[in-house]
Amino acid sequence: MNQIGILGVVHNEELRMQHGLTLETIQALILEFDPDVICGEVLPASWEKYRQNPLDRAYWGEPPSEYYELILPLCEEKGYAFEPIDWVELDVWNDFDPMRHYSGEERADLEAESDKWWDKQLTAAGKGEIAFNCAAFDETTSLKYRWLEQLDAEAHVFRWTGRHIIMMQRIKNAIKRHPGKKMLCIVGADHNHVLNEELRKLEQVEVIYPLK
């Protein structure tokens, strides 16, 4: 039996400060959960670059800032194993913008609608004990991505559905490498609801989400 927690974070320091999900808070949550393994939203190739040179930064595909500033050094300090689980094909990612088929005023209207969805997410983010880790945020986020799917189903499959299929497989592979271990998945909060739903389908896995 693997116990797996999910912690959704945001990749922007200003947002962290505004919503109380600071690096200090994230660290406290990690230490309280006390995992054996952290599965992080990092590309395997970027993880290898970090292992070769932790100071190599500012490249397309680098890990989000919380990994450099907190998570990866904490893994080294505490002896947590780290498993990179993200997937992005960097050379074609921008070709699958969900608004790629829209232009002019129509695109501007859709971008304004996207901003409204983000505002709804931010409003919902504070409705749990841990910001961005609650049912209200997850429900709003799920609705937002259903809306995006209607704009361009192919882009949605590439950027969202396919990405999660691969992220989940990498988590499953990590479970095989660490049987019976306590694991913590740390991802951008938009991914929370998908991982929560998919992990609960697995046998011999106890999901803890939200952490509080």
Rank of each mutant, 00 (worst) to 15 (best):
Y50C: 11
Q52N: 14
Q52Y: 07
P54S: 06
D56Q: 14
D56I: 10
A58L: 06
W60A: 03
W60C: 06
G61L: 01
E62P: 04
E62L: 06
P64Q: 13
E66S: 10
Y67I: 04
Y68G: 08
L70I: 08
I71K: 11
L72N: 08
L72H: 12
P73A: 09
L74G: 12
K78F: 02
K78I: 07
G79H: 00
Y80M: 07
Y80G: 02
A81N: 10
E83G: 02
E83W: 00
E83A: 02
I85D: 14
I85Q: 13
W87F: 05
V88R: 15
V88S: 15
V88M: 09
V88A: 13
V92Q: 15
W93H: 14
N94A: 04
N94I: 04
N94V: 02
F96Y: 12
F96S: 09
S103M: 11
S103R: 10
G104V: 10
E105A: 12
E105V: 06
E106S: 11
D109C: 01
D109T: 03
D109H: 10
E113G: 02
S114V: 02
D115G: 06
D115C: 00
W117N: 00
W117Q: 00
W118Y: 05
W118C: 09
D119R: 06
Q121C: 15
Q121M: 11
L122A: 00
T123D: 09
A124Y: 02
A125F: 07
A125S: 09
K127S: 09
K127H: 12
G128Q: 13
I130W: 15
A131Q: 06
N133Y: 11
A135C: 14
A136C: 07
A136T: 00
A136R: 07
F137R: 08
D138S: 06
T140C: 11
K144E: 12
Y145A: 00
Y145N: 05
Y145G: 02
Q150E: 02
